[in-house]
Each structure stands twice: as structure tokens, then as C-alpha cells.
């Protein structure tokens, strides 16, 4: 498994995908920080010049949109890249089982998504402190956790996207579904059962941490776990039975 993971890294280290994903995730942060810096006086008057204000604005980008699109893109590409380059047959003729190969892709995609979000989180903390927000460890940790935890929950899209890409052998199905469902997520924002819809789980976690919804905190976590497990099993089943022409 270690060798499969190592080679996943070699393959994608030299591709533009992961850098592009990181760049896309950094853009809202850069934009927000610039706005916060330029309009700090106005925001101070309105009581928004603090961690809460910054995290709220960042979550508009992440939980509601990019948070689903970018992880989906990373997961879809980890399989689609092999199809595009016709390298799946090389991989499948090495002495590893199909399950090991797919699980390596799941772990690698999740690691990339987690790493990108940790980078975003660390940069947010650094720039928040530079902007002069409350530097008490407790406050910084509690507030920025509202950014980190929902973003980390986006790893649940990995098995969904892998399943769709393997099933339809296409880039489009997964990305299209992710985009449509991210838009649908807006309609479910304040719905108390929103955690049942996978694309609403990150924003539901954020709202929970922000104590703006009165849902049992375990519900979105359980829901994310179920979605992740079900689609992982479906992906493995489909992949094990798939005839590889690429």
C-alpha cells in the first residue's frame, strides 16, 4: 500500500492538478484578507473586524461552493487521469489487488484535500493575527475551527466522485453533479434535515459550530460517515467488476 501511495504522489506531484486546486482554494482567502485589510475601519465600526467576521466570509466560498468543487475535482482526476493517459491497464497488471489500488487513490485524494485545507487554515491563522485580531489561543482555535472542520468534512466527496468516474468512465458526471448539488445546497441551508444531503454536510457542520442550528452535532458526522462508507463500498464493487479498456 505504501508503494501505491508513494507512486500516486509521484504521478500527481508533476501534474498541475494539485497546484491548481491549492491555488483555487487560496484565492478566496487572498480576496477576503485583502478586503478585510482595505476596509478594516468600516468593518470595525460594524463589529465585523474579528475572527468571526473573517471566517463567516470565508465560509461563504468554502462551505457553500469551492469546498465541494475542489475536492471533487481532485478525486475525479485521480481516476480520470489514469483513464486519459491509458495507464490503468499498467496499474492493474501490477501485482496489487484492485481494492488496494482504489483504496490508495482514496487515501491519497483525502490526504491532498486535508493538506490543502490545513494550509488554508494555517494561513488564515497567520494572516488573522497579522490583521490584529484577538490573539488568545482559545479564541483563535475556537473561531478558526469553524473553518477547518467543515472543510475537512469535504473528504466525504472522494468516494462519491470515484464511484461516478469509475461507473461512467467520464470526468463530466462527477463534476456536473458536484456543481449542481453545490447550488442546491443554498436552498437547504437552514433546513434542520440538511445533514441528510451530502453536499450540505460541511455547511451544516459550520452552522452547528456557529450555533446557528439546533441539530445534534453527531448527526452530520454520522451522515458523513455513512455516505463515505456506502460510496466507498460501491466504488470498490464497481471497480472490481469493471472491464478496463484504458
Amino acid at each position: 500500500m505504501y508503494k501505491l501511495l508513494k507512486n500516486e504522489h509521484i504521478k500527481f506531484r508533476n501534474s498541475y492538478i494539485n497546484y491548481l486546486s491549492l491555488l483555487a482554494m487560496l484565492l478566496p482567502l487572498a480576496l477576503s484578507l485583502t478586503v478585510w485589510y482595505l476596509r478594516r475601519d468600516s468593518f470595525s465600526v460594524r463589529g465585523m473586524y474579528n475572527w468571526s467576521g473573517l471566517i463567516n466570509s470565508l465560509q461563504l466560498f468554502y462551505s457553500l461552493f469551492l469546498g465541494a468543487i475542489i475536492p471533487s475535482f481532485i478525486a475525479v482526476f485521480s481516476v480520470y487521469y489514469e483513464m486519459q493517459e491509458k495507464t490503468f491497464k499498467n496499474l492493474l497488471t501490477t501485482p496489487y489487488s484492485r481494492s488496494q489500488i482504489l483504496i490508495a487513490k482514496v487515501i491519497y485524494s483525502c490526504t491532498v484535500i486535508i493538506s490543502i485545507n490545513l494550509v488554508i487554515w494555517i494561513l488564515t491563522v497567520i494572516f488573522g493575527l497579522l490583521l490584529g485580531f484577538n490573539s488568545s489561543v482559545g479564541v483563535v482555535f475556537n473561531e478558526t475551527l469553524k473553518l477547518l472542520l467543515p472543510n475537512l468534512a469535504t473528504v466525504l466527496f472522494v468516494p462519491i466522485m470515484l464511484f461516478l468516474t469509475i461507473r461512467f468512465r467520464s470526468f463530466l458526471h462527477g463534476m456536473l453533479l458536484s456543481t449542481i448539488c453545490s447550488i442546491l445546497n443554498f436552498a437547504l441551508l437552514n433546513n434542520e434535515k440538511a445533514f441528510l444531503f451530502p453536499w450540505s454536510i460541511p455547511s451544516n457542520i459550520y452552522l452547528l459550530l456557529d450555533t446557528r442550528v439546533a441539530t445534534n452535532p453527531l448527526f452530520p458526522v454520522i451522515s458523513a460517515g455513512i455516505v463515505f462508507s456506502v460510496f466507498l463500498v460501491l466504488s470498490l464493487f464497481t471497480f472490481r467488476r469493471m472491464d478496463v479498456n484504458v
Binding site: 509521484i10 504521478k11 508533476n14 493517459e85 491509458k86 495507464t87 490503468f88 499498467n90 497488471t93 484504458v246
Partner: peptide, 12 residues
């Protein structure tokens, strides 16, 4: 084996 056209990672 080579099955049909061989596939490789073009950027490597």
C-alpha cells in the same frame, strides 16, 4: 504485457 497501445504518464 502490452495490451493495445501502451499508456504512460505524459508529463513524466
Amino acid at each position: 504485457a502490452i495490451v493495445e497501445t501502451p499508456g504512460f504518464y505524459g508529463n513524466l
